[in-house]
Amino acid sequence: MRMAKYILTVCLLMIAGHMLYAQEEDLLKLVGGEEKPQKQYVDYAFKSSRVIMSHSMEVIRPGVMDMRILHRFGNVNRGAYEFFGLDNASMRLGFDFGITKNLMAGIGRSTNKKELDGFIKYRLIHQAKGPGAMPFSFLLVGGSSMTLLKWADTSRKNFFTSRIGYYGQAIIGRKFSEGFSLQFMPTIVHRNLVATQNDPHDLLAMGAGARLKLSKRISLNVDYYYRLNPNPEDGTQNPLSVGFDIETGGHVFQLHFTNAAGMNEKVFLLETTNKWEKGDIQFGFNISRSFQVKKKKK
């Protein structure tokens, strides 16, 4: 009797086992799914390598050339006669190159003061998720600009180095979510030649840039600098730009309003005299067009 019970139990167990086995199983689970947790870099915090006027925490990909055409029109408050500023435009034509995953460089020429500028941007820390996660990205930018204007005063001795200014910038940024990215940019600008004794050779500024995505292809961007030691007497202002990034296939259009003069760090930090509160703002738009110069290997 005891034996019969024993056999019965075992049979039942075996049947139960077979039933379990017959159930449709998730095969992928057998191999542990397809994801072993991997370090994933967080990309596309900004649509382009600039917030509006400032460098963003994005680096363009290796082998990509980004042609950037920047326009700033005249002041909007000039009225209908000046077509709200559109009769006057200044521009910067620039080319940026992606060299490695973390390194890019660019050159540009502005109509304002006939300035030539160039920069190198390097990403030391790349925001990432998963194992080895990093909460933020950290980049360094070094740039220089040179005016090619003829000397205003030819009676004095003019040095070539007087034409040149430099800037150094650190970018600490984080893409908080798909829709929101924020970065801070402590910056130093150095001029070899300044106009008066009150003008600092080295200007320190703290910048902030943010992006809020409104849809898949449109975002709202804000870009601002607070200057720590400006010349209090020359009436220059902290630059603020607000605008939209619109992406269409191969182009990114940046439409914005700004009080900034010029389109390189030295100019917009040191020579911005327009005031937002007076309506001395300009309409501007940037066009960014990417070309794949070097193709990726398959």
């Binding site: 449709e24 998730d26 095969l27 992928l28 990726k296 398959k298």
Partner: peptide, 19 residues
Amino acid sequence: TGNMQFALLMKGFEFEKAL
């Protein structure tokens, strides 16, 4: 049983052009 399953990560697709 003939059961067959595939899975992939969309981010794993690599294109010729970064854009």
